[in-house]
Amino acid sequence: MATVTLKPIKTPELIFEGYSITPDNFAGKTAAQIADLPGHEGKILMRLGDFFEISGNAGETAADTNIVITGDCSRVKYIGARMTAGTVTVNGNADMYVGGWMKGGKVHIKGNMDSFCGIQMEGGELICDGDAKNHVGCAYRGDWRGMKGGTIRIRGSAGNDIGTFMLGGTIIIEKDAFIHVSTHAEGGTVIIKGDVEGRVGGQMVKGDMYVLGKIKFMMPGYQKVDTVEKEVDGVTYKLDHYIGDLGERHGKSKGQIVYANLYVPAAA
């Protein structure tokens, strides 16, 4: 395993589209070659070296490459986007599209993330120690194929539109979320350990949701069917089980209609 260290030396005047910052793009390159990799600031084609001091050579393959960014990337987009293996660690904040379309490997953001992290993710692991803004693990505009696999774990809170059009994988928000969870989803699991304002599972076809805090406004299309015991992220809870969205279409499996499931702490 080889580690490439990126030390931010300059804040971009606008923002920097750092789409080259992935183990896949770094693999097999020396620090000097990595400094020459492209990125955009507006319409200007820049180099990674314009914004980062780079030390250490990459491994032979993406899987052999760890990237560590030692400072703030609040104005750097696309960190770890489309990566398939290896790791990226940011000791600070990151801008939009962290781990977007990623297929494998691991991204760890120690600060906060902006919107569209894990967009259309297919595999791998994305961890954020702080908060995420909107559209965690969502689909690209217009695509009905959202997140397909992998895990996103946000240790703080998240905004709106979590797991829109989700098909698979897991999203865990350890604190609160605002509105729209698993809208239009047809699979996957979303766990929110804090409170949610509302619009949980609207237009949802299939998949599972766990909200361990309070839902302020329930969707009218959900109905309680039973109370179950379930393990959620390693802890077992007694949960009320709702099915829905009864206003939406649903498929059948072995003659049975398959609804989406919402689990909330059982009423005492």
Binding site: G198, R199, G202, Q203, F217, M218, M219, P220, G221, Q223, D245, L246, G247, E248
Partner: peptide, 22 residues
């Protein structure tokens, strides 16, 4: 609360019941 009301209409149209007020 427009979203909830649309959902209520759709739920009713599919023949399911809805809460007392939405």
């Amino acid at each position: 609360h427009d979203y909830e009301l649309f959902d209520a209409f759709r739920t009713v149209l599919r023949g399911f019941d809805i809460p007392e007020t939405v």
